[in-house]
Design a protein around this nucleic acid. Sequence first.
DNA 1: CGCGGGGTTGAGGTCAATCAATCAATGTGG
DNA 2: CCACATTGATTGATTGACCTCAACCCCGCG
Lengths: 247, 247
Amino acid sequence: MAQVPSSNILIRKLQTISELAEPDIAILGNARIEEKQYQANADILRDGDQPTLSFVVLDGMIGSTKMTGDGKRQITSFFVPGDIPDLHGLHLSVMDCTFTALMPSRVGFMRHDALRSICDQHPSITTVFWRSTLVDAAIYREWVTNVGRRDAYTGMAHILCELIVRLRAVGRIEDHVARLPITQAALGDALGLSTVHVNRVLQDLRRDGLISTVGSHFHATDWSGLVRAGDFDGMYLHQRAADVLRQ
Amino acid sequence: MAQVPSSNILIRKLQTISELAEPDIAILGNARIEEKQYQANADILRDGDQPTLSFVVLDGMIGSTKMTGDGKRQITSFFVPGDIPDLHGLHLSVMDCTFTALMPSRVGFMRHDALRSICDQHPSITTVFWRSTLVDAAIYREWVTNVGRRDAYTGMAHILCELIVRLRAVGRIEDHVARLPITQAALGDALGLSTVHVNRVLQDLRRDGLISTVGSHFHATDWSGLVRAGDFDGMYLHQRAADVLRQ
DNA sequence: CGCGGGGTTGAGGTCAATCAATCAATGTGG
DNA sequence: CCACATTGATTGATTGACCTCAACCCCGCG
């Protein structure tokens, strides 16, 4: 029905971290995907759920979030088009976090039993999926460090660098201009900061000529400066060499 | 040579998160493991390494650590006996973090090629290993939240709860008395705090009757109080029901 | 035209870092 | 057996990063 199958972006993302064999690409391309649109701040899966579906991000951005007992929110990771945020649901029956759309987003659902049968029949795809969850874990590790040991200015620059590299890898931004209608509140929840402080840190980054913002457009005006300011080394994203060189 | 094969603790740990079939237990029990002892603060694998071995913790405690550009250390997770901290090395060729012994520790090395051939021949073991790495990722998620959105007092209580539950699950502590010769500096690096502040927070926890310390012995004198203080819900550890009930 | 969401600004307060000692326990060489 | 070094814990004083509260502004929208 769709000229551009929604599995395309999934395949592209997986290719940024693994080499995919032709037959595997065909298998993944034929996977049945049910598309659905979400508004900003809509929950897709909730902490405590026992889902029978996983989803791939097609457009927009999804956050994996956790709430503390006193109602504060932490975003533990961003997920951009091509990512399968809840692939772990395939093997962990109860969700330990909530997936929320951080901007208007389109996602594609895939049935767990279908994914499991693909994995059973194609061990090489199992490896690719496993690797994808391992890269997610590597990103979590970096976020612990970012939140625990970097100050607000450095952490903000870091997280922006990560977003730009990941979006570039799947062709969603050119150069270092990102259309990122992400709220300052979301950035704060990602970095463990208040929205007020996020605002001030963004002003500092603008003052230093590292970024500029025009409405929801977000621009890294000094990429190497931003990388330096953010103490950023994208190695933890484990992208294939070919993709890294394309940066 | 050893009466108690070092794979026992590995099997026990895997059983806390997955049901293991008899044949799989036999396969894992026969895995060749090279034991090695490390002193406190010794690195086992370093950021940037390309290891051909993975290791299981046999005794002590290992931390996965990252350094920031200005030389601050963050511990992104603890690993206790039975855990395989660097199982991700099986599919991510370059290490993105360092594994350090946080106290005198004994670990057992297993060759990647041996592990890969086990996975190739026994898909059910692949699933168990995959699930193990997914639980590690769930722990990272919780740590992001702990470091980002909980204050020092709550975060400290939380991390102590996690350690106690995980150590109990593999039978390394009875009741809630833990022998934990972990330094306050390590706790600080885990929580993103200075050692001075760690010291003061521990005093607060003692003052409130939640913990007591005698030398390197560490005792949760009020388990339910500590759980409450730490905003702790162990669901994210994804232990099997039988194990959770045994708490 | 009023409303709400997101962004911006200012003032004051707090949690935790830093700096700088001191102390206890352990180990080491003479 | 003691002088000395080392590691980790503890304490006090000061500083600073970031939070909270409380406005206000801007803009799109029903």
